[in-house]
Design a protein around this nucleic acid. Structure first.
Length: 430
DNA sequence: TCTGGGGTCCTAGGACCC
DNA sequence: TCTGGGGTCCTAGGACCC
């Protein structure tokens, strides 16, 4: 048995890198990818960062700069990023005994069975393979705990001399690097904890590692206590190779334009409910209750309004019609005329595996009928594309409320018409 | 005059993550 | 004009019970 050892591998400027894979003209050009509704910059290449474009910068504030500097700007293309992510994880699963997919571009690998002196070479080989097979550049951090592996990854990213790999396995390496990293870079330390820690003079990762763990607990709950121990090399967070059953499932969107009419709000929420029910069925789940919310923009001048309503189902369901009915009633109850709403959403909770809950004696719905209808519905949309059939209340092709995606690249890898074309010229020798 | 105490469950809100 | 979406975990405090 080896000791505990983790690697954290992630894509560099991942969304931007995905765009570059399929458009070589973006090489060396600054690239950014925007959040939903073309709201803020959520991914930037080093060239874009060098122009001063900050993480989360609202697009309308940086648009002029982007035009002037010929920044390539993209809406989020989740079909593309999700597919590239799956390709990377397939490679990890090939080379590591256990893989935990932590986010769309980050995975933890267990390296315990690899001898300590071979871990850096292993990581360099892995980076090379991922680059060759997917086109995505990565960095790898290695450590005896997940928190140290995350920290090592950050160090690898910000010190180009390390060749994309940093190993914090040894105490000497940690003694060198931890005083050079600010607490804001430590996994689990957010703005609130940063403020409290700074007041006590704790400013670097090494300071935090030597903080009394009971003090850390008082300041940042048990989560912070674990962070301190992990920084010392005591593993408190295990690799989760099997994703635990999810607790909730949400569909929320900002509107392309402010919504003032009840009819538009009903249509938007019915569309969320439709998407939500599809999501539940795809995961084989049913929801016990659903919450609808809507609110005005926190940045707007006018009077604010925020409201939510939770509806409990008589028994768990993933039926589109059930969800639309429940959310429709809730919307009518909480909608206030006279406000310009910026966002609405649904949150489904109390999730159970489909069919696992005992049937209610008094349930009057015909479950078999509902399940058959939903199966047919999903099959048609699978075959002919999302939205081919839909509930009348959710039908909306060109509604004013639709979220903006005005600069989306093609779905290169998941939609046939969008496949990139390669042209090979064959010269025959006469 | 003087009015318990301890347990469970649920929810809202905060903090954090990418 | 224009500021994302989708998660997790922890804690405090109220409701309720005996």
């Amino acid at each position: 048995m080896g000791d505990t050892s983790f690697a954290l591998i992630d894509g560099n400027s991942f969304y931007c890198a995905c765009e570059r894979v399929f458009d070589p003209s973006l090489k060396d050009r600054p690239v950014i990818v925007l959040s939903n509704n073309d709201g803020c910059a959520v991914a930037r290449t080093p060239e874009a960062k060098a122009l001063g474009i900050k993480m989360g910068a609202p697009y309308f504030k940086i648009r002029d700069l982007c035009d002037k500097e010929r920044v390539a700007v993209f809406s989020s293309n989740y079909a593309l990023y999700g597919d590239m992510s799956a390709r990377m994880n397939a490679i990890y699963r090939d080379v590591a005994p256990e893989v935990e997919i932590y986010s769309i571009d980050e995975s933890f690998l267990s390296l315990g069975i690899i001898p300590p002196h071979e871990r850096v070479t292993f990581s360099r080989d892995l980076r090379a393979k991922v680059l060759k097979w997917t086109g995505i550049p990565t960095c790898v951090g290695i450590g005896p705990t997940k928190t140290l592996a995350k920290l090592a990854n950050h160090i690898a990213k910000s010190n180009s001399g390390l060749g994309g790999v940093c190993d914090l396995t040894s105490a000497e390496e940690r003694k060198y690097w931890l005083p050079r990293v600010a607490i804001s870079e430590v996994w689990g330390v957010g703005a609130a904890s940063q403020r409290k820690l700074a007041q006590m003079g704790v400013k670097t990762a090494s300071c935090l590692a030597s903080l009394d763990s009971s003090v850390a607990r008082k300041l940042m709950t048990v989560v912070g206590e674990k962070t301190v121990l992990e920084l010392r090399g005591v593993s408190c967070l295990a690799l989760e190779a099997v994703a635990p059953q999810r607790k909730g499932c949400a569909v929320t969107r900002s509107f392309g334009r402010k919504v003032t009419q009840l009819s538009d709000m009903l249509e938007a929420v019915a569309t969320h409910a439709t998407r939500g029910a599809e999501k539940l069925r795809r995961h084989g789940l049913e929801a016990g209750h659903i919450t609808v919310f809507m609110h005005t923009s926190p940045f707007a001048e006018g009077p604010p309004h925020s409201a939510s309503r939770t509806v409990h189902f008589p028994e768990p369901t993933a039926d589109t019609i059930d969800l639309i009915r429940a959310t429709g009633r809730a919307v009518k109850d909480i909608f206030r005329p006279g406000y310009g709403y910026a966002k609405s959403g649904i949150i489904m909770e109390d999730l159970v595996e489909a069919g696992s809950s005992p049937r209610s004696l008094f349930d009057t719905r015909d479950r078999e009928k509902s399940e058959a209808l939903m199966q047919a519905y999903d099959a048609i949309n699978q075959r002919f594309g999302r939205g081919s059939v839909t509930a009348a209340s959710a039908a909306a092709k060109d509604s004013t409320w639709q979220t903006k995606f005005e600069m989306c690249s093609p779905r290169y890898t998941t939609v046939l018409e969008d496949l990139p074309q390669a042209i090979a010229r064959v010269h025959s020798k006469g």
